[in-house]
């Protein structure tokens, strides 16, 4: 009997904590989002409100756009950097590659709000880049494009790329570490360039962790607060800012609304992620017909 329940007992403390905080939070949120009517009654009033609210949909689309764009850019950039690090590791020096990887991890030391602040002092109309271009006579005092607090959300996107790219590199780099040099040499004997080798042998191995990393980044970015709060605009607001301001508006009747926004966003994130997963699963298959091993065998 004991060996049968042992794994459950071992996992129980962590599981209970997570269930209480996480599932408790989500179910609590659902229940409170349904409590906009009379006490003790289920009411879909909050959902009806937000579904019919233009503000919500504007916020939602705005958020979706910057979250999707920043995760796309960060993924591509991360992949390119990892390729560079792979090249350095194989052709120059594996220590140097590791050192560069560490340096590129620097932004992880800063919280989101500092990342936002850094982008602000770099890219605001009178920020460092504007001054640099002005000094170089490449831009006038007022001709620097609006990159922070802008309606498209460029500042937010750049801040997220700055902050999340290191995370993506962190998730991908271990794959590079596991690829033995002998592989590349075997590839060279067969006349395959580093780029070709990377595309055919390494890239398929990077896809699963890249998908995981970008999924985490996308979901997290969608509801993160600090960056859009500092770098966003008043209309449309990011979902997180919109929900949080309703939550703390002082009027308790707004709270179900705030929670309904959060719950709806969670559902939409889940749906979008599933959709992307289904699409990229097919896409992944055309690249990599077999298991992990196949990545090498195609060389």
């Amino acid at each position: 009997m004991w060996p049968k329940i042992k794994p459950y007992i071992l996992i129980l403390p962590a599981l209970l904590t997570t269930i209480t905080l996480f599932l408790g939070g989500i179910f609590g949120g659902i229940i409170r989002s349904l409590s906009a009517g009379k006490p003790g009654e289920i009411s879909f009033y909050a959902y009806a409100q937000i579904f019919s609210s233009q503000d919500f949909w504007a916020s939602f689309l705005f958020t979706l756009r910057y979250a999707a764009l920043s995760v796309l850019i960060a993924s591509f950039l991360g992949l390119a950097i990892v390729f560079g690090l792979f090249y350095v590791r194989m052709e120059i020096n594996s220590r140097l590659s590791l050192f560069l990887q560490r340096l590129l991890q620097l932004p992880m030391l800063f919280p989101f709000l500092v990342a936002a602040y850094i982008i602000f002092i770099l890219l605001s109309p009178h920020g460092w880049l504007a001054r640099l271009l002005f000094k170089l006579n490449l831009a006038g005092e007022n001709s620097f494009p609006l990159l922070v607090n802008d309606p498209f959300g460029w500042g937010i996107i750049i801040a997220y790329v700055f902050k999340t790219c290191p995370f993506i590199i962190l998730m991908l780099y271990p794959v590079i570490l596991k690829i033995p040099k002998a592989w590349l040499e075997a590839g060279k004997v067969l006349g395959i360039s580093q780029a070709g080798f990377f595309r055919k042998a390494v890239f398929p191995l990077l896809i699963p962790p890249l998908k995981t990393a970008s999924f985490i980044v996308f979901a997290y970015t969608f509801l993160a607060f600090e960056i859009p709060y500092i770098l966003g605009i008043t209309y449309p607001k990011a979902i997180a800012v919109y929900a949080y301001q309703l939550y703390t508006s002082g009027s308790l009747s707004d709270r179900p609304l705030a929670l309904a926004i959060i719950i709806t966003s969670l559902l939409l994130i889940a749906m979008i992620s599933c959709l992307v997963h289904i699409i990229t699963r097919r896409w992944g298959k055309t690249i990599k017909p077999g298991g992990k091993e196949n990545g090498f065998q195609t060389v």
Partner: peptide
């Protein structure tokens, strides 16, 4: 179990905490 344990990493905690704030 593993999924439940890892899931919270996906969502900024404030959004979940509002649900058990009470």
């Amino acid at each position: 179990c593993e999924l439940i344990l890892l899931l919270p990493a996906l969502i900024p905690p404030w959004a979940v905490i509002t649900g058990i704030h009470k």
